[in-house]
Design a protein around this nucleic acid. Structure first.
Lengths: 332, 332
DNA sequence: TCCAAAAGTGGGATCGGTTCCATTTTTGAA
DNA sequence: TTCAAAAATGGAACCGATCCCACTTTTGGA
């Protein structure tokens, strides 16, 4: 493999000039540029990325930490992030903490990224206590958090107004005439699950139809957690005509189980989800849900991270609003 | 940040000894080891990954090229790969060629990986003509292909017997008594789609029930492609009691559309998918499908790539067999 | 006790870029 | 034409590891 020195020699210039030519910084005369271009072509030269990184103290690597890769939610995020980073010539390295058993493990996954000398880090976490985010954020200025809001991380945390989302769900069900509703939440230790859940309950109560505890099931945002929660809900003798699920995965599981039992959606029971992931138009019936702008949020987080890390000036937005997306799984 | 030299000085040993201690290769006396350990602790030393890479001429980076990140199929692959690589201390960088418009673009995505000096490359491609795989594979000994078989890439291509898969689908439908079946295929330029499709047709014909052209729709393995193909199928006056879909995404779209039209599955029409992705237990009704061992295949490909690249000796298997997974979407 | 083999060691050369700086060349206004 | 400012240049120092090699110390069988 050819090196800058080879190129410099062939082009009859100094190595500094070649470096300046390649990076586009500093000035190079037209004549030199041409000679260098020809030499690069001739030698089929390609800069060595490790040498470049070592010398410039920048890896062009962005670490992305996710708590799980099950289901479409995080996938949509990853897909958006990969695309945004690639557009700017950066590379993503991924740490999926799904297999972590303890908080220590989760930290180890973060170290897996940090040890790689990432220029910046994206964390998608709604578990605020998970690790001392604030402490990390202090040590690591190029760290940005997706789907979690803290005042301490102003300008570096990107979030969706899940309070509004929960209320939109409540209002939609009430407008359709459902006064007896049940709900399956995610783990309430997670900020996003908690927010939408509390807002949902609050709005129901505020509008005169509080949800009694027997119609509240705490589940988790996974297929397995969904199955358990759905089973738990269907095992109660609670009486309801609509169910608000904390995310679309759980809603999908619920619809499948209701179908299996011959209960019609939305004929007998209306179901509304949350997130509006890829598959929502394709459940049977198509899932009414709260649309969370996951992709826009992810892209904004990426942009701001690139701004902080590389001094760019890409547009971004910190807060996003969800909206109601009515399909066929909810009815009067 | 502390360097090996700092550690060496504090521990009162040479830099070579520190390096040997850290890498675990070469010999270090117990006494030195203890002093070094203490110094590392004290200085909070962490090796610089770029310097290490430059010097050792190994990046510990594995590039992964995928044609798309829509839907669960590639995500399951990515998830498996990330996990296998992390277990061995390697990092994955990803290139999603979904946004590529031309063959040239797709090659550019591959260059995005190669320019990063990946130690090895994983390509998931069923489009054999996409780029000159054989040429690349020759230049790049540490390149491995998932879900594509070529004799030229013996020991480096990992595949599923989609011929068997297609036949299993045909036999299942026939055993249930469906003699008039329709099928929606993926793009037939893709090896995997072609194989399963041709095998399906062949088996149907062989067993006395050839599928006439009017009941064959060429679609694509995406939600949008599925929607189009489903619309095309339902627009014909073809008469059938079962549909074989080339993948689960398309099957999901079909079930949703049939539901919308009040056509019962499997009462009026049976539907069988292919792949057995994450969501198949949770469609309504749960999707009968051909189980393709995507995760096992991905892991094997990873293992063999690690073997080739780092001289490991991990177990792997080149060929996998699909199996029939009967759920509720198919019936008599 | 002796001594060859094995284990352990220090430090310099090296990987292939970037960056700095002193120096030379070019530019263009007076 | 003159000359200060701006542009362009070459090459050495540096980034922080690994690896090699010549050398010293330890080991254990005779």
């Amino acid at each position: 493999m050819a090196t800058v020195k080879d190129v410099a020699k062939l082009a009859g210039v100094g190595s500094g000039t070649v470096s300046r030519y390649i990076s586009g910084t500093g000035s190079v005369s037209r004549k030199s540029a041409e000679k260098i271009a020809r030499a690069i072509e001739q030698l089929n030269y390609r800069p060595n990325s490790m040498a470049r990184s070592l010398s410039s103290r920048r890896s062009d690597l962005i670490g992305v930490w996710v708590p799980s890769l099950e289901g479409p939610y995080y996938h949509m995020m990853i897909r958006t992030i990969e695309s945004a980073l690639r557009l700017h010539g950066k590379h993503m390295i991924l740490a999926n903490a799904e297999d972590a058993q303890s908080n220590e493990d989760r930290l180890a996954h973060l170290d897996y990224l940090i040890n790689r000398d990432c220029d910046g880090i994206l964390i998608s976490s709604s578990l605020q206590s998970e690790f001392e985010l604030a402490t990390y954020a202090e040590k690591f200025p190029n760290l940005v958090v997706i789907n979690h809001h803290t005042d301490e991380l102003a300008g570096r945390s990107f979030s969706i107004d899940h309070d509004l989302g929960g209320r939109l769900a409540a209002r939609h069900l009430l407008e359709l005439g459902h006064t007896r509703v049940a709900t399956i939440t995610g783990r309430l230790s997670a900020q996003d699950a908690r927010q939408r859940h509390h807002a949902f309950l609050d709005e129901m109560a505020k509008l005169g139809h509080p949800v009694p505890p027997k119609r509240i099931i705490e589940g988790a945002f996974s297929y397995a957690g969904g199955e358990q929660a759905v089973a738990a809900l269907l095992a109660t003798d609670a009486d309801y005509s609509a169910v608000f699920c904390g995310n679309d995965k759980v809603a999908m599981v619920l619809i499948a189980e209701l179908h299996k039992r011959g209960i019609s959606v939305p004929g007998d029971v209306s179901v509304i989800g949350y997130d509006d992931v890829e598959f929502t138009p394709f459940t049977a019936p198509a899932l009414s849900t709260i649309h969370a702008p996951i992709e826009e949020m992810s892209q904004s987080a990426c942009h701001q991270l690139l701004n902080l890390t590389y001094g760019l000036d890409l547009p971004y937005q910190e807060h996003f609003e969800p909206s109601l997306s009515v399909r066929q799984s909810t009815g009067p």
